[in-house]
Design a binder for these strands. Structure first.
Lengths: 140, 140
DNA sequence: TTGCGTGCAAAGGTTTTGCATGGCA
DNA sequence: TGCCATGCAAAACCTTTGCACGCAA
C-alpha cells in the first residue's frame, strides 16, 4: 500500500488540484492534458500516468475502465471513504460513481472470506451496472 | 442482437471447437493464435476478432476485461452460465480467475436493485482480492 | 453470381519505457 | 549529494480498418 518516498513537486500539486476540482466526475489522461493546454501550459503524458499511479497506490484516486477500448478514467476520492468497507458502483450509463456503505453488503465480504476463502480488496473493486435513472431509460 | 447472415466457414468451426474445448476457462486472442500455431497452422488476427465479435452478438461467448491494460478475455458460454448470475473474482496475487455461482451472492444482485436501484452488470464486474492460497502467504 | 470471410499490412489509440536533465529534501 | 520527477521520443500492445482475394450459398 505504501509507495516509495515521494516528493512534493509542482506537477503533483497541480494534478491534485485539478483532480479535486473535478471531484465527483471522472477524467481521462486526455482531459488532464487538455486542461493544461487550456492554461497555456504543457505536461508530459508519461508524467501524468506516473503521478496517477502513485496516487492510485496511495488511495487518492480511483481508476475505472468504462469502455474497454477507450482510455481509463480517474477520479479523486476523498481518502477517508475508500480505505474502509465501501462499495463503489459505477454507472456505465452516465458515469456517475456511487459510494455504498451498507450493512447488507458488508456481509458479502465476510461471506466471501468464510465460504470462498476470498479476501475482497475494496479500493480496487468496482461494481459496474446501471443506476436507477439510467436503468429506467433503458440504456444498455 | 441479431447478426447479419453468416456463413459456416472453416475458421468459424475451428474457433468454436477450440473455445468449447476450453469451456470454463478464459482465453485471449493471443491464446487462440498460439493454439493455431501449435497445430502448425496460422490464422489472421483480424479474423479472430471478427469471428469473436459475431459470436458475441449471438451470445455464444462472453467477453471480459480483467486487467484494463491487457487483452480482453473470451469464454464460450453454453448460453447457461454467464448470461446468468455469476461473479468473477480475480486474485491480485496470482492472477487466477474464479467463477462463483453462489446463492448467497445472488442475493446481492437483488439487494442492490431493490435497496439501491442499481442494476448490476455481471460480465463487466470483477471482484478483486486475494484467493485463499495467496491470502495465507501474506501477499499484498 | 452475390456477398460475406479471410489474410496481410497498416493505422489508431492507449499506456509504458529508456534516457538525459531538472528539482526536492 | 542522493534520489526521485519530468519531458521527449520511441516502443509496446491491443484492436480496428482497408483492400484484394477466397469461399459459402
Amino acid at each position: 500500500m505504501k509507495d516509495k518516498h515521494q516528493y512534493n513537486t509542482r506537477r503533483r500539486a497541480e494534478l491534485l488540484e485539478y483532480l479535486k476540482s473535478m471531484q465527483g466526475r471522472h477524467v481521462t489522461v486526455n482531459d488532464i492534458r487538455a486542461h493544461f493546454l487550456a492554461k497555456g501550459e504543457s505536461i508530459g503524458t508519461a508524467t501524468i500516468y506516473r503521478q496517477l499511479d502513485h496516487m492510485l497506490s496511495q488511495g487518492l484516486v480511483q481508476k475505472y475502465t468504462l469502455d474497454e477500448t477507450s482510455a481509463a478514467c480517474f477520479e479523486y476520492v476523498d481518502g477517508e471513504c475508500c480505505h474502509d468497507v465501501c462499495f463503489h458502483c459505477k454507472c456505465v450509463g452516465c458515469g456517475q460513481l456511487i459510494h455504498l456503505h451498507c450493512g447488507e453488503l458488508e456481509k458479502v465480504q465476510g461471506h466471501l472470506a468464510e465460504e470462498h476463502g476470498f479476501r475482497l480488496d475494496f479500493p480496487r473493486t468496482i461494481l459496474y451496472g446501471l443506476c436507477s435513472a439510467c436503468g429506467r431509460e433503458g440504456v444498455r
